[in-house]
Structure formats: C-alpha cells, structure tokens
Computed example of a mutant assay.
Amino acid sequence: MSNEGASVYILLCADGSYYTGLTRKEVETRVGEHNAGINAEHTSKRRPVSLLWSAHFEQLTDAIVTERRIKGWSRAKKEAFMRGDFETLSSLASRKRPS
C-alpha cells in the first residue's frame, strides 16, 4: 500500500445527517464533488453538504482506520469529537463497554 497521505472528513448533510469520508484529494475539492453529486452516492440526495471537520494523515492506513472508527460512532460521540470535548467522548465510549 502506498505511503501517500489522505484526509478524513465529516460533512453535515441537508437532512441533518453526518457523512464521514476519506479522500486523497484536497478536502475542499472532494466537498465540491459531493455538492455536485460526483461519486457521491450517499450524499447526492442529501445536498447541499457542508464540511464540519477534517484531518490529514501522512499514512493512508491511519486515515482508513480513523474513518472506519468514526463511521462506527454514534451521533453524540461524533459531535463530542468535533467539539474537542474529550471528556464526553470518553464517557460515551465507556458506556458501550460491558460492566
């Protein structure tokens, strides 16, 4: 696998849902594609979308792991993460663990 980096991003869709994606392009370019309906199956019916959060990773594998992790999170956990509220994020994560 190539060592070229990639970015992970979270979009707010017009219907209020979140979409998490990964791109090797500039994030702004990819957001424009989502808004144009290009390679955007999930978001094409939820336009317009707006960028809420993004991060670049030097290693593609790190970006893939991060995207998959975020996609598995609840809405509340995604919101805490985007706010940088790591105390709430930790609390939400611990709720899922068996007692």
Score class of each variant (00 low, 15 high):
residue 1 M to G: 12
residue 1 M to T: 08
residue 3 N to W: 02
residue 3 N to R: 06
residue 4 E to Q: 12
residue 4 E to V: 10
residue 4 E to T: 10
residue 7 S to L: 04
residue 8 V to T: 08
residue 9 Y to H: 05
residue 9 Y to A: 03
residue 10 I to D: 01
residue 11 L to F: 04
residue 11 L to P: 00
residue 13 C to P: 01
residue 13 C to N: 06
residue 14 A to T: 01
residue 14 A to V: 01
residue 16 G to P: 01
residue 17 S to A: 05
residue 17 S to D: 04
residue 20 T to C: 08
residue 21 G to R: 04
residue 22 L to A: 00
residue 23 T to D: 00
residue 23 T to A: 00
residue 24 R to C: 01
residue 24 R to N: 03
residue 24 R to T: 09
residue 25 K to C: 03
residue 28 E to Y: 02
residue 28 E to Q: 08
residue 29 T to G: 00
residue 29 T to W: 03
residue 31 V to N: 01
residue 31 V to D: 01
residue 32 G to P: 02
residue 33 E to F: 07
residue 34 H to S: 01
residue 34 H to K: 03
residue 35 N to P: 06
residue 35 N to S: 06
residue 36 A to F: 05
residue 38 I to C: 02
residue 38 I to Q: 06
residue 38 I to D: 05
residue 40 A to I: 02
residue 41 E to R: 08
residue 41 E to K: 07
residue 44 S to R: 11
residue 44 S to Y: 01
residue 44 S to E: 05
residue 44 S to V: 05
residue 45 K to L: 07
residue 47 R to Q: 05
residue 47 R to D: 00
residue 48 P to L: 07
residue 49 V to S: 09
residue 50 S to N: 11
residue 51 L to G: 09
residue 52 L to P: 06
residue 53 W to Y: 15
residue 55 A to K: 15
residue 56 H to M: 09
residue 57 F to Y: 15
residue 57 F to I: 08
residue 57 F to K: 09
residue 58 E to F: 09
residue 60 L to I: 08
residue 60 L to Q: 12
residue 60 L to K: 11
residue 61 T to D: 13
residue 63 A to Q: 05
residue 63 A to I: 03
residue 63 A to F: 05
residue 64 I to S: 04
residue 64 I to V: 14
residue 64 I to T: 06
residue 64 I to G: 00
residue 64 I to L: 09
residue 65 V to G: 13
residue 67 E to D: 11
residue 71 K to A: 03
residue 72 G to S: 13
residue 72 G to M: 09
residue 73 W to V: 07
residue 74 S to P: 12
residue 74 S to W: 08
residue 76 A to N: 14
residue 76 A to M: 10
residue 77 K to L: 12
residue 77 K to Q: 15
residue 78 K to W: 08
residue 78 K to F: 08
residue 79 E to G: 10
residue 79 E to C: 12
residue 79 E to T: 15
residue 80 A to R: 12
residue 80 A to S: 15
residue 80 A to L: 13
residue 80 A to W: 07
residue 81 F to C: 11
residue 82 M to N: 11
residue 83 R to N: 14
residue 83 R to I: 09
residue 85 D to K: 13
residue 86 F to S: 12
residue 86 F to C: 11
residue 87 E to L: 13
residue 88 T to E: 15
residue 88 T to S: 15
residue 89 L to M: 15
residue 89 L to C: 10
residue 90 S to D: 08
residue 90 S to E: 10
residue 91 S to F: 13
residue 91 S to Q: 14
residue 92 L to T: 14
residue 93 A to F: 13
residue 93 A to D: 12
residue 94 S to T: 14
residue 94 S to I: 13
residue 94 S to L: 15
residue 94 S to P: 03
residue 95 R to Y: 06
residue 95 R to H: 12
residue 96 K to E: 15
residue 96 K to G: 14
residue 97 R to S: 14
residue 97 R to P: 06
residue 98 P to S: 14
residue 98 P to A: 12
residue 99 S to E: 11
